[in-house]
Amino acid sequence: MTASSEHIQELIAGYVLGNLEPEEAEELEQLIAQKPELNNEVEHVKASLGLMAYVPQPVSPPSRVQSAILNEFQEFHASQEPKTLTRPISWRWSWVLASAAAALAFGFGLDNYRLRSQDESVIAMLQQPNTRLFALRGTGSTVRASGGVVMDLDKQDAVLAVQNLPALSGTQTYHLWAVVEGEKVAFSRFKTTEGKAVEKIPLPPELYNSVISSLVVTAEPIAESPSPVGPEVLVSVL
């Protein structure tokens, strides 16, 4: 290494350290302009300094740190769940689908929406051999509510469409549950606009191989309800 290259190394080190005098900074700038490959050396020296981070001995933090992080993580993902599990789809498409479900299976609830023959995707879904249809009917004070769920068990997708549901207070959320062997399994949550909701929802993995006997919609007091505690507002009819 020549004296000149040592000088350049020191200038680069000074640059990385942030302790160059103005005239030194100018000199380095000129050198880099003449030899752009010096930029690589700057990066290597930066990396070398950064490796100082690995000098201290690793120390395990107290267990409370991990507990606090886990709690935050779980709360964060619970709050994100509606965004990741449900995807709004167009009203036109979905109401057609809900209508098709009702018209083909039950003629119930959504018959004020006409099936549009050009909507081949809906027809295709309904023609699948492994499609299941559930009509939903209101109960008690929500007797005017109605809706339907179409499930494509091969594609593990479903569409939910409901109407005439009452508006909920701030923290309340509608939850859809699948009844499997008498137990209610979380399926999805949804919000309504003017009493209506239409959502395309992926089938939860725990329902892939389950025999769903019926569906129930409840109004839960909090979004994170792991099991239904709120009143049933819609139940599927046979």
Partner: peptide, 26 residues
């Protein structure tokens, strides 16, 4: 002190390069 820091960093870079046995990439 400025000189110590600069020379120290230059040597650190050289030592790391040497211990890794490569031609310059860290």
């Amino acid at each position: 002190v400025k000189s110590w820091l600069r020379l120290g960093l230059v040597k650190l870079r050289q030592q790391l390069q040497s211990s890794l046995g490569n031609n310059g990439s860290i």
